[in-house]
């Protein structure tokens, strides 16, 4: 387990909402909500380019540790509002999915075992 606060600091992520003092079990990267609902696990950090409000519902459902939006994307207004309500951390990076995942991996965060 790695604390999300450390990750934010080490990878220079921009926190737009949510409490980042929580543990991250592993990482999950996907842009398909149905896939995340089916395969992500509790306390995963989720990497996606989706910015729609539904991502908060999915994160909530799966009890994810947070969502990183890649390639400089900003969450939609409704997404931000909902994330605040549900206390889901939303973090931003300018990096691509491949690169941010790589950097998380180097910090010791791995994919879920299958």
């Amino acid at each position: 387990m790695i604390n999300l606060k450390d990750i934010v600091q080490k990878l220079d992520l921009k926190v737009v909402t949510g409490n980042i003092d929580r543990e991250v079990s592993a990482g999950y990267s996907s842009d398909l909500l149905s896939d995340v609902i089916a395969n992500a696990q509790k306390d995963n950090i989720w990497i996606t380019l989706q910015i729609h409000v539904n991502i908060v519902a999915v994160a909530n459902l799966q009890e994810l540790a947070g969502i990183i939006l890649v390639n400089g994307r900003q969450p939609e207004e409704a997404t931000l509002k909902k994330a605040e309500q549900e206390n889901i951390p939303i973090l931003l990076t300018e990096l691509s999915t491949f690169e941010i995942v790589g950097k998380l991996y180097e910090l010791g965060i791995h994919g879920n075992r299958r």
């Binding site: 999950y28 990267s29 491949f98 995942v101 998380l104 965060i109 791995h110 994919g111 299958r114």
Partner: peptide, 8 residues
């Protein structure tokens, strides 16, 4: 492997 594990 998952996308995350592969990219990592």
């Amino acid at each position: 492997l998952t996308t995350f594990e592969s990219c990592g």
